[in-house]
Design a protein around this nucleic acid. Structure first.
Lengths: 220, 220
DNA sequence: TAGTAAACAGGTGTTTTTACCTGTTTTTCT
DNA sequence: AGAAAAACAGGTAAAAACACCTGTTTACTA
């Protein structure tokens, strides 16, 4: 018998998941909560702690990483499986560093849900090959001198990337235009597009954006 | 049927392992080699490539990591399981970054050897909880290592630091002057001093300098 | 107490960036 | 073949940055 808790702010999804878990006779649902804060309060006066906590990554008040960190410290026996929606793979490594024992996409197969829970309970963790690759990449990026490589939240064209890099190299529009054999007006246009696309105010903002998203690499 | 190769320079251990593998009817030993170099030569004129390669970490000529890297590039279908003696846990994360699909201690149980091989063949990888913890720690260390910023090679005054930070926050001279209750001319003076002291050409250079030396921290 | 560094601030002018336009050509995708 | 996206480039003007000058006040310290 595995004691399970579900922490997710999306009520419909949570209820659905709860029902799904109840359909499996091996599981006992000990509690469910809307966010990390409520869950911690519930834990405080609970007799039997859950073995497994299925925790949504994105929650108001206290998100998955934060909750994960607190649980790791105060309730190390609880194994946390992170639930995420597609496209949040870039946070995988953060999760694992924070102490997650498993990682599941919300659109996974039911069998995968069950096998992840069972494996995590028995072996102590469960990750699929996808998670592993995400971790590998995260390590690689760190190697390059970046703490974390967030994927670029907007679509920059190839040309915009090139010009952004050159801006980071302290080149002026005139210098960039020379190097690329284009008019300064064109460079200007790209620069303007970069500012609007990124939502930055000026050059300083562009440089930070470039570093943040790995477009420009700072040599230490 | 799983095709297996063994690469290990310790002849006795290798022969023992080979016999052990032969005892399992699910496995076919396609080749064995003393080191990475020989193994690569063997692979070159081999008809059926191995599915799994059990590779010792410490080998003369070409060690586990190097071989791993080459295999990953030239024979991506071969899944590498690293064999190591006790006390080499600190290299685990290196292995995984290099593309290892599994990690086994040489003093492990035979059942663990078999389950690792089977899991790696079926799922694509297999790690135990110990490996996972090693990876977690490695990430942590890397994180801390990055905080060891280079010490600032020049003497910036307190005021210059403050203004440099504000420049990184995308503030203009006018905005900085407002916040600090000083004239824009003064801010301008500080900015000029920053440029001459750091040897930068413009704002982009200042931002990169600030990040490089930990004066400004990029939030990821 | 004289010297020095730092913060302050004014003047003047140039260069660069930023912000609006406008449009054409080329490439890419359907 | 037609639509859409990207790269290209011109005009105008204001805002900001950059350069080089001047000087005062304050504080520390040799």
């Amino acid at each position: 018998m595995i004691n399970i808790a579900v922490v997710d702010d999306q009520n419909l999804f949570r209820e659905g998941l709860v029902n799904l878990l109840r359909s499996n006779p091996d599981y006992t649902l000990v509690t469910q909560a809307e966010n990390g804060k409520i869950f911690l309060e519930q834990l405080a006066d609970m007799v039997t702690l859950p073995d497994i906590a299925l925790v949504d990554m994105n929650m108001p008040q206290m998100n998955g990483v934060e909750l994960n960190t607190v649980l790791r410290r105060n309730y190390p026996s609880i194994k946390v499986i992170i639930l995420s929606v597609h496209g949040e793979e870039r946070y995988m490594s953060k999760m694992i560093e924070a102490g997650a024992c498993g990682y599941l996409k919300k659109n996974c197969e039911i069998t995968e849900l069950f096998s992840t829970i069972n494996n995590t309970y028995q072996i102590g963790f469960h990750f699929n090959i996808e998670t592993l690759n995400a971790m590998r990449n995260a390590s690689k990026y760190r190697k390059q001198g970046l703490k974390n490589m967030n994927s670029i939240p907007i679509n920059l064209t190839e040309r915009e990337m090139v010009i952004l890099k050159m801006i980071c190299d302290e080149l002026t529009n005139a210098e960039i235009s020379e190097k690329l054999f284009i008019s300064t007006r064109t460079v200007d246009g790209h620069r303007t597009n970069l500012l609007t696309k990124t939502g930055c105010k000026n050059t300083a903002g562009l440089v930070i954006f470039a570093i943040k998203y790995g477009i420009y690499e700072v040599k230490f």
